[in-house]
Amino acid sequence: MCQLFIHADPTLWQSSTRSLRIDGVVTSIRLESYFWQILDEIALRDGMNVTQLITKLYLESLDADHDISNFTSFLRVCCARFLSLLADGHLQREPLQALEEVDAKQLMHSEAQDMQRRALWQLPSKPEQH
């Protein structure tokens, strides 16, 4: 199992920092190249570049009163959720539909059901009774 991860392209976990302007303020974000690639893919679906996507995520997080003190962790989780939604079949890999057009409420409901099913897999099995 570990060979899948150990022999992956090492450039995937190399970090890089990008400077960008969010709401008029210059800031920098340091992420592993794999996360930058995923953010590129997400941005492409909605006809944006990564800076525009990150700005949109940041401003919408503020509007939702989220604690964004660790915004880079939030971005990593966004990437992981995107990949999970792809893996579970809730989204298609090809950018057929902009994420802005997705019924987020329905998709999150389906995602929650999938998470509940996965939680059941982790329950300890009952000992067999003889």
Results as ranks from 00 to 15, higher is better:
residue 1 M to W: 13
residue 2 C to K: 02
residue 4 L to K: 10
residue 4 L to G: 09
residue 9 D to H: 13
residue 9 D to T: 10
residue 9 D to S: 11
residue 11 T to K: 11
residue 12 L to P: 00
residue 14 Q to Y: 08
residue 15 S to Q: 14
residue 15 S to V: 05
residue 18 R to Q: 04
residue 24 G to Q: 15
residue 25 V to F: 13
residue 26 V to C: 07
residue 27 T to V: 02
residue 28 S to T: 11
residue 29 I to T: 00
residue 31 L to R: 03
residue 32 E to D: 05
residue 33 S to Y: 07
residue 33 S to H: 01
residue 38 I to Y: 02
residue 39 L to T: 04
residue 41 E to W: 06
residue 42 I to L: 08
residue 43 A to Q: 01
residue 45 R to F: 00
residue 47 G to N: 02
residue 47 G to Q: 13
residue 51 T to C: 07
residue 51 T to M: 01
residue 56 K to Q: 12
residue 58 Y to C: 06
residue 58 Y to L: 09
residue 58 Y to T: 04
residue 61 S to A: 11
residue 64 A to K: 12
residue 65 D to F: 15
residue 65 D to T: 05
residue 67 D to C: 12
residue 67 D to G: 09
residue 67 D to N: 14
residue 68 I to Q: 04
residue 76 R to G: 02
residue 77 V to M: 12
residue 77 V to Y: 09
residue 80 A to Q: 06
residue 80 A to E: 14
residue 82 F to K: 06
residue 83 L to E: 09
residue 84 S to G: 07
residue 88 D to M: 09
residue 90 H to T: 08
residue 90 H to V: 07
residue 94 E to V: 09
residue 94 E to G: 11
residue 94 E to M: 10
residue 94 E to D: 07
residue 95 P to S: 14
residue 96 L to K: 09
residue 98 A to N: 04
residue 101 E to Q: 13
residue 102 V to F: 04
residue 103 D to W: 12
residue 107 L to C: 10
residue 116 Q to R: 14
residue 120 L to D: 08
residue 124 P to K: 11
residue 126 K to G: 12
residue 126 K to V: 14
residue 127 P to T: 06
residue 128 E to C: 10
